[in-house]
Amino acid sequence: MATLADILDPTGRATARIGATARAPRRTGLTGVRLGLLENTKHNAALLLDELAALLQSEHGASATVLRRTKTAFALPLPEETLAELVGECDVVLTGVGDCGSCSASAVADGIALERAGVPAAVICSDAFTATASGMAEVQGAPGYAYLTTAHPVAILDADAVRERARQLLPQVVATVTDASAQRVAS
């Protein structure tokens, strides 16, 4: 006679991946760093990243050289060639905005991929998508991966409000991609 233990599992769930560390080495400051901006076509994403880049240049000495890339398949992790390009030409990458069910998860996957390739990344998601963003961090074998959140919604903000968001996010972005955050996360 069959028992409950004979009921088949419909998930085929893979054992959790033990991932490599998802943390690239940090610099102590941002003077002269080449920024990469990976925007995901979500409304206001490009503007938010541009505003952050301008603040990092004017207030933290980041280089005027900025590599801007658009992720057209926003729901999926970024293509290998884009990853290689960002890794090859940037010291720090900002990406976002994780403002939907699939793109929030994929933004976190991108951040983790960049970190594993040696580039510090600041991933910005709307705070309505922490479940899926954190879920992706677990899938990638990096539970607890520190992404940044900004209040939902982002897409309907006007340009001034986006600038204000960039201003609010700036200290967290700096802390995330520099050595100071290593102290913070470790503590």
Binding site: D9, P10, G12, A14, R17, P77, A105, S106, A109, V139
Partner: peptide, 18 residues
């Protein structure tokens, strides 16, 4: 792939039965 998950014929059959 981004979720590290896949569907096999076996899993399809289990879910269809369920």
């Amino acid at each position: 792939p981004h979720l590290n998950r896949s569907v096999t014929l076996e899993l399809a059959a289990i879910n269809a039965a369920m």
